[in-house]
Design a protein around this nucleic acid. Structure first.
Length: 565
RNA sequence: UGCCUGGUAGUGUAACGGUUAGCACGAGUGAUUCUGAAUCACUUAGUCGGGGUUCGAAUCCCUGCCGGGCAACCA
């Protein structure tokens, strides 16, 4: 590292370099590849991106940016049976939305011809052969961790025969599964991936980009490193499970004598109370246990976006969690705090009553409506003020009234006085109940001298509560979200047990009776907003004319809720 | 049982053989407050165990324990 030249050094990073960035910094300092840095983000278009991908995106694009390099977006589309254009498009949307712009946009399928030619080269070098066994036979010969594998009876076919068969595989002369191309490495290697790994398989499937041009497709291990090499990727960053693949990655590049991209592995992100596997997320979508990939409970980028997460919050989160090889479990509150911290600065405040109960202010003129000034964002003077209508009948939150308050309860109760935010002090005089004994209405009086919320006599109230004017408020549906899963660590679900049993049945609560202050109608455009004392919210796309729908992005911290536990 | 990896407060991380082992989140206490929010201050708590090497070890070596990964014609 060069703390060497303090004079014209850029602002020092607040954080020390993570081990990947350190590797890059060392390479640059050593003048490797002339100091050029090239990374890539290589998703397979077989699902939507999730927050774990965001970690990788921030890393790869971040490195390129910080070291004056470039980062490509490359679709790893070597398996036509699982990949779709829908995913290609969503991935591009999500990467852009996160705030990154790729330099090159590529597909592994762009390289099929080159990859094929290199496969012929491996055959000619005697390093690859066509195996005509079934997958079961090949699998059985692979051996076990303790027992070496055994050679395929086809392992010593001549170069000419291999070449002929491989070319005919390409031409489509054989059905799926009839032959595969394998590398000839070492059936006794302790690393299974070197026990003559498959390079190509026959798949007479329609590819989302190459159509029916090909009927043989390269395997990941054969395609990935060579694609990196073609793009002159200097640092190929991937997750830990590919660690064991590195020797094969290096083997291909070395035998082919092509640009030496190098692979480095970091730990993937795990978050509490959610799932982070494309397979499981797809399962949720297909089983309709969520409304889609963008269900706000999903940890997908589009789900988080719909939930009200901002790119800034996600990027800040990714910067906070660090990059290591330790396979940990990050607490969901870290993500939530990243959002709170971003939105606290930029979300305007409004009042909304989620579970309303009516309050009648007995000494307030029934014909009167006042417009009261309210601050839009105490954290941002630029946000200005607005006017909120006040009248004799208002709604407050059911949770803000208790007929028999427990110790430590500051809010409204019989005989107690609270402040209505930006309005008046009110004191509860009585309650009205129905036959069942349910409170249907709260009666109160207000103190005209406290207009605006300040008491001239200096008397204090313990609580300030939010409210809306019953005659002016607009109804809305509000959706509250909780953890997708009941348990913290989904990886602890034993094999053979359905992980879906751990889904949280209370992950979605729909409140259809909410009442909003009138100015909230202008938030239908999707700007984030804080409902005072409740949390951050965002309008949902399900809204229709006359029917607003808001999603709760995240609650505010709530010391009272915590105290009650 | 083989190979590869990893193990620092509750959680996520920093330390590059040389500080009283730092930071963030959480938790707790207090101040402040027209959001039980935010903000501010303080407190809490850690090098997986055992051996070695060294003047000095979280760091290097050995060993044990624990976690993760690896035997798809998936990526």
């Amino acid at each position: 590292m060069s703390a060497a030249e303090p004079n014209h050094a850029p602002a020092p990073a607040e954080r020390p370099l993570d081990f990947i960035r350190q590797i890059v910094a060392d390479a640059v300092a050593a003048g490797q590849h002339g100091g050029r840095v090239q990374t890539r983000f290589p998703p397979e278009p077989n699902g939507y991106l999730h927050i774990g991908h965001a970690k990788s995106i921030c890393l790869n694009f971040g490195i390129a940016k910080e070291f004056g390099g470039k980062c490509n977006l490359r679709f790893d589309d070597t398996n036509p049976t699982t990949e779709e254009t829908e995913y290609v498009e969503s991935i591009q949307d999500d990467v852009r939305w996160l705030g990154f712009q790729w330099d090159g946009l590529f597909y592994a399928s762009d390289y099929f011809e080159q990859l094929y030619l290199w496969a012929e080269k491996l055959i000619e070098l005697g390093l690859a052969y066509v195996d005509s066994q079934t997958s079961e036979e090949i699998s059985q010969q692979r051996g076990t961790p303790q027992i070496p594998g055994t050679h395929s009876p086809f392992r010593d076919r001549s170069v000419a025969e291999n070449l002929d068969l491989f070319r005919r595989m390409r031409k489509g002369e054989f059905p799926d599964g009839a032959h595969v191309l394998r590398a000839k490495i070492d059936m006794a290697s302790p690393n299974f991936l070197l026990r003559d790994p498959l390079l190509y398989r026959i798949k007479k499937a329609h590819h989302h980009r190459t159509g029916d041009t090909w009927c043989i497709y390269p395997m990941y291990d054969y395609a990935h490193g060579q694609s990196d090499s073609i793009e002159q990727v200097t640092h190929s960053v991937c997750t830990l499970e590919f660690d064991a693949h590195r020797p094969l990655y290096d083997w291909c590049i070395e035998k082919l004598g092509i640009f030496p991209s190098r692979q480095h592995e970091f730990a993937r992100l795990n978050l509490t109370y959610t799932v982070m596997s494309k397979r499981k997320l797809l399962e949720l979508v297909q089983a309709k246990l969520v409304s889609g990939w963008d269900d706000p409970r999903m940890p997908t980028i589009c789900g988080l976006r719909r939930r009200g997460y901002t790119p800034e919050a996600i990027r800040a989160f990714c910067g906070e969690i660090g990059i290591t090889k330790y396979n940990g479990l990050t607490d969901m509150v870290v993500l939530e705090n990243a959002l709170r911290s971003d939105l606290n600065k930029k979300a305007e405040r409004r009042m909304a009553v989620l579970k309303p109960i009516k309050v009648v202010i007995e000494n307030y003129d029934a014909d009167l409506t006042e417009q009261l000034d309210a601050v839009n964002n105490p954290e941002d003077a630029e946000a200005g003020t607005r006017q909120v209508p006040f009248s004799r009948e208002i709604y407050i939150e059911q949770d803000d009234f208790m007929e028999e308050p427990p110790k430590g309860y500051f809010r409204l109760s019989p005989g107690k006085e609270v402040r209505l935010r930006w309005a008046y002090f009110i004191k509860c005089t009585s309650v009205v109940k129905d036959e069942a004994g349910q409170i249907t209405e709260i009666r109160a009086t207000y103190d005209p001298a406290t207009r605006g919320g300040d008491s001239p006599d200096g008397r204090k109230v313990k609580a300030t509560i939010h409210w809306v004017s019953a005659n002016h408020s607009i109804p809305a549906e509000v959706r509250l979200y909780d953890h997708l899963c009941k348990i913290e660590d989904l990886s602890q679900v034993p094999d053979g047990e359905d992980w879906k049993n751990q889904l949280n049945p209370a992950s979605l609560t729909v409140l259809s009776e909410a009442q909003l202050e009138p100015s909230l109608s202008t938030f239908a455009d999707g700007r984030p907003v804080q409902f005072e004392r409740l949390g951050y919210f965002v309008a949902d796309k399900d809204a229709e004319p006359g029917k607003l729908v808001f999603n709760r992005s995240v609650t505010l911290k709530d010391a009272w809720a915590k105290a009650k536990k």
